[in-house]
């Protein structure tokens, strides 16, 4: 197993974090959060990968074939469900914020301070 997918996961995570910190648009910022989360998919799938392994659901293969780890795939699915819930809620908030503040810049959301 090469190091490459782990480096990709780390890179995606860092890019997502960079975007979150510097973003000046709510929707952009939320998508950066999605990017950050995508790094977890890459990491988990890389962890479960086996060279030459087939998908862990099969019926027409005889013997005991090599499969990739099914656990991480279940984790990624759960992770996606979590992401859908969080992202949709955040996007809903962004729409409302645009309506109330008249801006989608996080710097302009300044009702609370100190």
């Amino acid at each position: 197993m090469s190091l490459f997918p782990y480096l990709v996961a780390a890179w995606i995570a860092l890019v997502g974090l960079y975007g979150l910190v510097t973003s000046r648009h709510l929707v952009h910022q939320i998508l950066c959060l999605v990017v950050l989360q995508s790094s977890t998919y890459v990491l988990l799938l890389a962890v479960g990968f086996k060279t030459g392994g087939i998908a862990p659901y099969f019926s027409d293969v005889s013997g005991r074939p090599v499969t990739v780890d099914p656990v991480v795939q279940a984790l990624v699915l759960t992770d996606i469900v979590v992401e859908v819930a969080v992202t949709s809620l955040l996007l809903g908030l962004a729409v409302r914020a645009h309506r109330r503040f008249g801006s989608v810049d996080p710097e302009e959301l300044r009702q609370l301070r100190g």
Binding site: L17, L20, L26, Q29, I30, L33, L36, Q37, V86, L89, L90, L93, A94, R96, A97, R100, F101, P106, L109, R110, Q111, L112
Partner: peptide, 16 residues
């Protein structure tokens, strides 16, 4: 305005 900003900050930081 307040609840929108509070909830947004809360959700983003905790999700990260």
């Amino acid at each position: 305005k307040g609840p929108l900003q509070g909830a947004y900050n809360f959700a983003i930081t905790n999700s990260v």
